[in-house]
Simulated assay, not measured.
Amino acid sequence: MGGFSAQKFWCKKRLGEPQMRIAVVGGKLQGLEILYLARVAGFETLLIDKNSDLPAGELCDSFVRFHFNQQGSFPADCGQIHLIFPALEDLTTLKLISSWGDELGIPVVFDLDAYGISSSKIRSNALFEKLKLPRAKNWPDCNVPVIIKPDDSSGSKGVVRVDNRERVEALLADFSGSPVVEEYLEGPSYSIEVIGRPGNYAALPVTELYMDKDYDCCGVLAPPLLSRENEQKLRHQICTIAEALNLHGIMDLEVILHAGELKILEIDARFPSQTPIAVFHATGVNMVELLVELFVKGRIKEPRVKGGFCLLEHIRVTGSDVEILGEHILADRKNLQMKTDFYGAHTAITDFNASDNKRDSWIATLVYKGNRSEEVDLNRRKCMSQIAQITKNSG
């Protein structure tokens, strides 16, 4: 385990202030996102996880190996902690982390009540219906194709598209639990986050999401080509949902623009992955910094948004093949490194090792940024060209 140079990765010096130290529980995709943005904001970080070989293992200042379980014990020898950021989605563990925060008298940056609704698609859809927000039609009051997905999973996990009625009925007969079956909607997907507490919410910049063939997000564009009218609708929708949930913390909303209408796909009341880094590099808005402000000061101000563009995408290199795939390719990798100016990309989070000439399998999250969208596109083409040359030489 180990950290990396704060100066190298644009940390802001907080003169005259004690350094904020945050504990991040969970070192996979959400943890990686939080640790990245915490470093950029200049915070000291402690990572806590039951495993030591993790995607985010090299992005923290210190590490404590600990397994939250029902035996009632909590991590020891953690030093001073100012805030606790859960970065996982297991409800039992989340409740234990909340109890740990209560015992220490330290705020836990998580809303268990809001998460209890957002973690169920059935309960979430009932809330959308109550608020009269547009969403996909339910089966059997819709035509095929349909999407079948588990009630209690987020993202693309367990999502299946079915194109005929007989197959739908057959799958439902064998499906364990309570599946959600909705009409399949086509169109660009967008995401937006909100941070705050009742009566004081800040809707953040919108992003566009790109999906791979398995409906896993493989890329994020910020800002997207979206009309001002639709952007305002999204901001209104997410603040309406946040107020209805009595949200204290952060939540994201994913929608699809289908036949000219924004329709809600899902909400998640937990720290997201992928979109926060893209939003930061495009606009300067740091969601970890905003959450610290909210939980320390009790209120949040509308953040200043800088003009810029960013594209974030995930690649997997195998031999001479370069694939753009969903973020799941990061989940089983260990101790990813952060690199700047990575073959034309502004930033990379990767397990690529330039000194290992025999390496022919690696992954990376690549961040391209610029003042104009054309500049982002040019940087991407340069990066892909150089990566292609790498794969050719290694072969």
Rank of each mutant, 00 (worst) to 15 (best):
L366Q: 03
A87T: 13
S189M: 10
Q386R: 15
Q337W: 12
E129V: 04
L46H: 02
K12R: 13
G177L: 05
V181G: 01
L91I: 06
N371A: 07
Q7A: 14
A242L: 01
D377L: 13
D214N: 15
S191M: 07
L378G: 07
L226R: 09
G199F: 13
R381I: 10
I148S: 10
P140G: 09
K369E: 15
D102H: 00
E183Q: 14
P303I: 05
M211H: 14
K13T: 12
V146R: 00
D49H: 00
A136C: 02
E293A: 04
A38Y: 09
D212Q: 06
G16K: 05
E44G: 09
E17G: 10
I106P: 01
G158E: 05
A259Y: 14
L209P: 08
A203R: 08
N51W: 10
I147A: 02
G42R: 00
G105M: 06
Y201L: 05
L171T: 03
V181E: 04
G27D: 12
A354Y: 12
K8Q: 14
Q274K: 04
K306E: 11
L37R: 08
S120T: 02
R372W: 11
I192R: 11
Q30H: 07
V168N: 06
G16Y: 08
V292A: 00
V181A: 01
E129W: 06
A114E: 03
S373M: 15
E313P: 03
G42H: 09
Q80V: 08
L262I: 15
S273N: 09
D212A: 03
K213F: 15
Y343M: 03
S62E: 06
L265C: 10
M251P: 07
K149W: 07
A331L: 14
L311D: 10
D174F: 06
E186W: 13
S118Q: 09
E186G: 11
C383Q: 12
